[in-house]
Design a protein around this nucleic acid. Structure first.
Length: 967
RNA sequence: GCGGAAGUGGCGUAAUUGGUAGCCGCACCAGACUUAGGAUCUGGCGCCGCGAGGCGUGGGGGUUCGAGUCCCUUCUUCCGCACCA
């Protein structure tokens, strides 16, 4: 029989599904291996040919690991909450759950037809209540926790409460809001329950904070950053303004240090780690306090400890060693001290400057990076180390959100400060002997300090240490590590997301009872905000938290169950739920645990399952998630570890970014008439510049090797029915361009079409054949024929000329064994280093060789089927059963053992080079020692001709590699 | 501006430790079979040259018997960040 890929593929896909061939067990004597793909958002467009790239690679790896004797977990699911479904719902009124369901079935069908070895019994969907119950549960754990800097981990909030009860706020070293109170144990106990809760909220790992959001009044909704383009909504182009709103936030900054140091322990691509490092943005430096001078404040006879904070400017610097060169301070215009520092004379100037910088959009501020602007407050501060009075300015090059929002300006060492000083004629003091500040600032750390008081003569290291010690002694500063990263906003004013398991009482948030989980997303009449601007959930009728009087719901109680005594005996009351929903990254920040135990009703996954699978051994996905998903997931994982709910500090041991598959668009060139109108005549690529033409995208599916199928073109769109063409060599040649794969460029290639025409095995191998997995590349269907031909040739090895199955039981020949063992070794090496493209060409070489040898040896072909099966599983399963094996066993047979003996050669065709240039090859036995090789080579007549019978200066012989004669 | 990745035939790519540059395909050319094929097979295919030969891994320089690979320098493309104190 001929290679009937359609029948074969359908047959095996059904077999695998019916027999649950790839179901993984949660306990096994085999070692575990967890291969994970980044789960997709099921969009309405379905998969294009670029999406499965990573899935194919991970599937090959998973199948290979099974052959290597591992118990492999290879699951798939859907990140099914998200904006597109909601947007569609707003437009059509259709519930997003319905669109999501439809899209998921499309995805499932498309994934199934590619022959992936997923364990579908573990499928997860983030939008399913069984799943988001546990997303909500983890949120609750975060709410009930604080970060203890002393133990460097998160702890239950109870431990903080106990500390407050025993010692008050003294000795607490926590990651918390800036405005926490200082109190004694007694004072704490006298606080009302509500006041206690208010205070605790400042410590919780998820907390309420006033944050700025993108508010679009016309759409009546909050937009995500990527929905805003240059201050206007991407959809509709309505103006977007920054608006302050109370938002849920996650105290991810508590984990900044661990998120950074953990990067050194994981095998991820270096660029991606670098992105996370930049995002976290650690800088080591010092906080320094500058007292305000008596110039502004009448009495400054006070010691530092007595000075109210409003009279101290705190700056963060990474170069505390340059402090003697600080000739002025600069505050961000938004800095809270600016109004009190501004003198009456300067008030107008300052106010004008603030107004002006507020007007600037972020874009303008960026474009404006080179212009210097600022304003003097009229006040002076005192440098704590030399008591010099220096002026305080404001300028928008200082960002309110970074560090303390204030800098000490050292114009000799910092270019921005230098430009500022030049512009406003402020002093520039050199502080290092070798510093050259003629034309620009010199940030050198080499040399010795000058003009720098007690650090004069010291080097950088000595000075830094001495200064920090001195500042600490004076109480005027301390060493400080600062991070660029900010706490993450954890809420959206949207419908299609996880409801936040929180209700409000007296304006304070409380967790709902754990028994009430999941808090189901309610039905609403419209998916838009209310007229008063509240999120869509405000439309849900009768949706509120029914706090029982203690009996009605059994153990129903308010969480946190701390200190509250005012709930007893009350009538059931309905409290308002939180109306925002969780952001897109909530559900994806822990999903790999759910796969371990997807049906568990009692826990997000059982302890046994988590202890068995532990972490993800291989994670494949796109680099676009570098600072989003991959950072949040690491954060939640560390938190779960602190709570003893997860065993490993890092969730993804090894990670690979598959490259993006770009689109390759085809263009036709339409002739333009004198009036600039498009005609119905099209000019072939070579002649496009000889006429007035305009390029037009054409569907890549009616173009082959850049030759336009004219007949299909005429059918493509009615207006082209009578199109005329100016051809080259009788053909219409299209131009091409590499751009995003998108409907509007008509360059989308659908995997369904390819699978229909060539089969899934061909598609899988071709996607790998395109090039290295990590590399981005344009999709070009040209070339797929080569892979298709290869599979047919492979099929033919097992069949005679009449296409009857025909293999022989005989002793394999030496050459057959050599071909086989070359590929056994090669594929093993390639897969281990994720070089899938090179395996495919090696398979081609092996099959070419075996075809030339007319090999139909059963032993050889049996092993070859196993080696190829991770790449082309369907055809291999079919041949495997034809070879007489039981159906379905192929996935778990041992990978063939490589035997190096079969590759041993006794002769080698040495390349003979003269002065580094290869001239010929000579067959020389491999057991010849270098001296014998040299003698043999120099004895050769052709060699003598090349070296002109002269005595060589030197002969280099690398055994088994090369001979180089130097003359 | 800073950080990262990458530049090899007409195209996708290969060369795993410094050791024959272009494997394997696509496209193309020639041929075989075939009453003109989206079939199969054979041969050719980096560039210049009839050939001998010369030149070739973005450009320039260096180390080495030998460099796509190592070092310096420079250009280009892509990605990320963007006044970060």
């Amino acid at each position: 029989m001929d290679y009937q890929f359609k029948d074969i593929e359908k047959k095996w896909q059904r077999f695998w599904a019916e027999n649950e061939t790839f179901k993984a067990e949660n306990n096994s004597s085999k070692p575990k291996y967890y291969v994970l793909d980044m789960f997709p958002y099921p969009s309405g467009a379905g998969l294009h040919v670029g999406h499965p790239l990573g899935y194919i690679a991970s599937d090959i790896f998973a199948r290979y690991k099974r052959l290597k004797g591992f118990n492999v977990l290879h699951p798939m699911g859907y990140d099914s909450f998200g904006l597109p479904a909601e947007q569609y719902a707003i437009q059509t009124g259709q519930h997003p759950a319905i669109t999501t369901e439809t899209n998921i079935s499309t995805y499932r069908r498309q994934l199934d037809q590619l022959g992936f070895s997923f364990d579908w019994s573990r499928e997860v969907r983030t939008s399913s209540p069984d799943y988001y119950k546990w997303t909500q549960w983890i949120f609750m754990q975060l709410f009930d926790s604080w970060y203890n800097n002393q133990t460097d981990k998160a702890e239950p909030i109870d431990s903080l409460v106990r500390h407050f009860e025993q010692n008050g706020s003294a000795g607490v070293n926590a990651v918390c809001d800036d405005d926490v109170l200082s109190f004694s144990a007694e004072e704490w106990k006298t606080l009302s329950y509500r006041d206690q809760q208010t205070e605790l909220l400042k410590y919780r790992l998820t907390y309420l904070r006033e944050s700025t959001v993108n508010w679009c009044a016309a759409l009546g909704t909050v937009l995500a950053n990527d929905e805003v383009k240059d201050g206007f909504s991407e959809r509709g182009g309505f103006p977007v303004e920054q608006k302050k709103m109370m938002q849920w936030s996650m105290r991810i900054t508590a984990y900044a240090g661990r998120l950074l140091s953990g990067l050194d322990t994981i095998d991820w691509p270096e660029p991606l780690k670098e992105m996370q490092r930049n995002w976290i943005g650690k800088s080591v430096g010092a906080l320094v306090k500058f007292r305000m001078s008596d110039f502004q404040f009448r009495n400054s006879e006070k010691s530092d400890a007595e000075i109210p904070t409003s009279e101290i400017i705190e700056v963060f610097t990474t170069r505390v060693d340059t402090i003697f060169g600080a000739t002025f301070l600069v505050l961000a215009p938004e800095h809270e001290l600016v109004p009190s520092l501004t003198t009456a004379e300067q008030k107008k100037v300052i106010e004008r400057y603030i107004a002006q910088s507020k007007k600037k959009s972020e874009l303008e501020r960026m474009a404006d990076a080179k212009t210097v602007s600022g304003a003097f407050t009229g006040s002076y501060a005192i440098n704590p180390l030399n008591d010099e009075k220096i002026p305080v300015w404001i300028a928008d090059y200082v960002l309110a959100g970074y560090g303390t929002g204030a800098v000490m300006a050292v114009p000799s060492g910092d270019q921005r400060d230098y430009l500022f000083a030049k512009h406003y004629d402020l002093p520039i003091v050199p502080i290092i002997d070798i510093q050259n500040i003629e034309k620009e600032a010199d940030p050198t750390k080499e040399g010795r300090y000058i003009n720098s008081g007690f650090i004069n003569g010291m080097n950088y290291k000595e000075a830094t240490t001495a200064l920090i010690a001195k500042l600490e002694e004076m109480g005027a500063g301390k060493a400080k590590i600062n991070y660029r990263m900010r706490d993450a906003i954890f809420g959206r004013q949207r419908y299609w997301g996880e409801p936040v398991p929180v209700y409000f009482k007296d304006g304070l948030p409380y967790l709902i009872d754990e028994q009430e989980l999941p808090l189901i997303l309610p039905e609403v009449d419209k998916y838009l905000p209310t007229e008063s601007g509240e999120p869509p959930l405000a439309r849900a009728k009768g949706w509120g938290y029914h706090l029982a009087s203690g009996k009605a719901r059994g153990s129903a109680k308010v969480s946190p169950p701390i200190g509250g005594g005012d709930l007893e005996g009350a009538e059931p009351v309905v409290y308002e739920y939180e109306l925002s929903t969780m952001p897109g990254w909530a559900g994806s920040s822990w999903y790999w645990y759910r796969y371990m135990d997807a049906d568990n009703d009692d826990a997000f996954a059982s302890k046994e399952a988590i202890d068995y699978w532990k972490d993800v051994d291989l994670y494949i996905g796109g680099s676009e998630h570098a600072t989003g998903h991959l950072l949040y997931s690491r954060f939640w994982n560390k938190f779960l570890k602190d709570m003893n709910l997860a065993p490993e500090e890092e969730p993804f041991k090894k990670l690979i970014n598959q490259g993006m598959i770009q689109g390759r668009s085809n263009l036709v060139y339409r002739l333009i008439d004198d009036l600039g109108r498009g005609t119905n005549t099209f000019v072939s690529h070579a002649f496009r510049n000889q006429y007035q033409t305009s390029p037009l995208h054409v569907d890549v599916n009616i173009v082959e090797n850049d030759i336009l199928d004219i007949k299909k073109f005429k059918e493509w769109r009615p207006e082209f029915e009578n199109a005329e063409f100016i051809l080259e060599n009788g053909k219409y040649v299209c131009g091409f361009e590499v751009e995003k794969m998108s409907k509007r460029y008509y360059n989308v290639v659908n995997p369904d079409d390819i699978a229909n025409r060539y089969g899934a095995d061909t598609l899988r191998m071709y996607e790998m054949f395109l090039g290295p997995l990590e590399q981005s590349k344009p999709w070009n269907t040209n070339g797929i024929e080569g892979v298709f031909k290869f599979l047919r040739k492979f099929w033919k090895l097992f069949h005679d000329d009449k296409l009857n199955f025909s293999v022989v039981d005989a002793e394999p020949t030496k050459q057959e064994l050599k071909s086989l063992h070359k590929i056994i070794r090669k594929v093993e090496e390639d897969i281990e280093r994720f070089s899938f493209n090179t395996s495919v060409s090696s398979f081609m070489i092996a099959v070419n060789e075996l075809t030339d040898l007319k090999c139909n040896n059963r032993a050889i072909l049996t092993d070859l089927v196993v080696v190829l099966s991770p790449y082309a599983p369907h055809i291999c399963e079919e041949l495997w059963t034809m070879l007489g094996h039981q159906a379905g066993t192929l996935s778990y047979v041992p990978y063939p053992k490589f035997n190096p003996e079969y590759l041993v050669e006794d002769e080698f065709a040495y390349p003979i080079s003269v002065n580094g240039k290869t001239r010929m090859n000579l067959n020389i036995p491999l057991n010849f020692e270098p001296s014998a090789v040299e003698a043999f080579v120099l004895g050769n007549a052709d060699v003598q001709k090349y070296i002109d019978h002269k005595a060589p200066k030197k002969v280099i012989v690398v055994k088994g590699r090369i001979v180089n004669i130097v003359i």
